[in-house]
Amino acid sequence: MEGFIEIRPRRRFFLRLYLHIMLRVLGRAIQAAARVDEDVKKEFNAMPENYTFSLGAFPAGPCMIIGKDTQGIVRYMGSDMEKQPVHLKITLKSVRHFFSLLTFTESTPVSNARNRMIVSGDVPYACAAVRIMDIVQVYLLPRWMAKMAIKRYPRWTFKRHTVDRAKVLIRTLLGF
């Protein structure tokens, strides 16, 4: 057929780079918050030992894995889905949708309402994972930006807003 072309659309380098960086920050921040924040600790305590969950893009886009190890310590486990079994997968339907989520142009509830997100695994733990990410976003983002990303900005104590936030940010930067 004259004029017929076959293409395999290329990967979008800058989008993926941004997502990789953001996921690394988010992953380390969740790990940090699990050591600092009581609510996040509680959410993870309710999960079984060795439980892992991931946040990524369909079909094999950037992702992060968070999990509890055998000692019950929460760790950011990178992005290699083949290294460890993932019990709960939260997947955005495309890299573009994931980008909208992590640039906070589309909040988690909006993204979910627009059917951009799919969950495979235990729904109660998926709810817990979303609550954890909401808390972490409040730690990481300025108030005006966090308000765009979550449904309701929480009423926290002064200590949580300042001391705990500083601890989470330092731990995120240093990766412990």
């Binding site: 509830p109 979910n112 309402a113 969950v119 729904v123 109660p124 733990y125 998926a126 709810c127 817990a128 979303v130 609550r131 979550i150 449904k151 309701r152």
Partner: peptide, 13 residues
């Protein structure tokens, strides 16, 4: 109720 997925679609947290 905290673990029910339908709460994702609720307008208020």
């Amino acid at each position: 109720a905290l673990g029910d997925g339908m709460v994702f679609y609720n307008p208020e947290d």
